[in-house]
Amino acid sequence: MITEREFLERARLDRRTLTIWIEEEWLIPARHADELSFTDMDLARANLISDLKDNMGVNREGLGVVLHLLDQMHALRRALATALESARDGRPSAKR
């Protein structure tokens, strides 16, 4: 778990930017009793958002679209992986 202060430092963000990203639901940190806590995954996602914004010129409107599509793509990739795995094992349905 990463605290908000550590997160801001490691992601090289200021608090205002972070607040906007959370409002936009680009980042969804866990919340315990008014304190935010972040995972390594949140940190990697923040780096990706910075890359898109600062290095690739994606603006605020575009970012929401990109992330929405990325999140769908990752769900699809995993669903496809599950389906392929089951098909390869020759089982009629996946366990778990």
Binding site: L70, Q72, H74
Partner: peptide, 15 residues
């Protein structure tokens, strides 16, 4: 991270 599963950002509406 996204490939590991247990991804809270995952969105299943695409399929």
């Amino acid at each position: 991270y996204a490939a590991q599963g247990g991804n809270p950002y995952e969105n299943h509406s695409a399929y």
